[in-house]
Amino acid sequence: MSYNKPLPKIDPVNQGFWDNAKAGKLSVQNCKACGDKRYPASPVCPKCLSSDQEWVTVSGKGTLESWVDFHRAYWDGFKGDLPYRVCLVKLAEGPVMVSNLVGPSDNAKVGAAVAVVFDAVTEDVTLPKFKMV
């Protein structure tokens, strides 16, 4: 069965993130001029405005900041997953990401430790998701 959920729109600014994810690495954008780290990517550094940006691998560790359980499928592809859990994770390196919390998460609470896992949803796209640790 073909994958029928939304896929990331890959462009020159975010290409590195998705290449790294496919290789099983979580990365954030790093400013080579001032060291500011962020996700999602930006064409210039919001701190110093430098265009000199790179992708750096991060630990994949973070803390749970919040979550929401979807009981409505806004896309048909999610109908079979209801209810599914979306999480907000603050990476140890600072940036905050939205993803899915997979595996048991009945003991979810703000501040809980989470770690990245990789879900190769298509031949080209691997989504970084998180599990409780």
Binding site: P6, W67, F70, Y74, V86, V98, N100
Partner: peptide
């Protein structure tokens, strides 16, 4: 940017808050 995770709609953002 977050749609691949099924995160969409203003209501969901407020639910997360």
């Amino acid at each position: 940017v977050w749609d691949p995770f099924g995160f969409t709609s203003p209501g969901a953002a407020h639910a997360m808050a």
